[in-house]
Amino acid sequence: MKNIDKQEELQKQVGMYFDQALDPQSKDEFLQKVNSDPQYQQAFQHEQLMRDHIKKMIHRPGDPSQLIQAIKNQIGKEGA
């Protein structure tokens, strides 16, 4: 039971850290735990890997310069 609680707390803190939802003090405490506790370190690295992979792999439209020009042209027309 204690292990489940610890695991849940760990998940919660890792998630909040990456969501930028920890206050500065909790963030410092969390990072200290990451540096000293292998379980925290593993969970931290795992979560970071997942999020980086999603960010890297998600489809992003290419160079927006054409769209920027189209927006400027449209605004130019409206303003004229």
Partner: peptide, 15 residues
Amino acid sequence: VSGYSDLREEIFLHM
């Protein structure tokens, strides 16, 4: 608060 932590890295990184 959730995370992706229980999805296995090995599976995920092949995607």
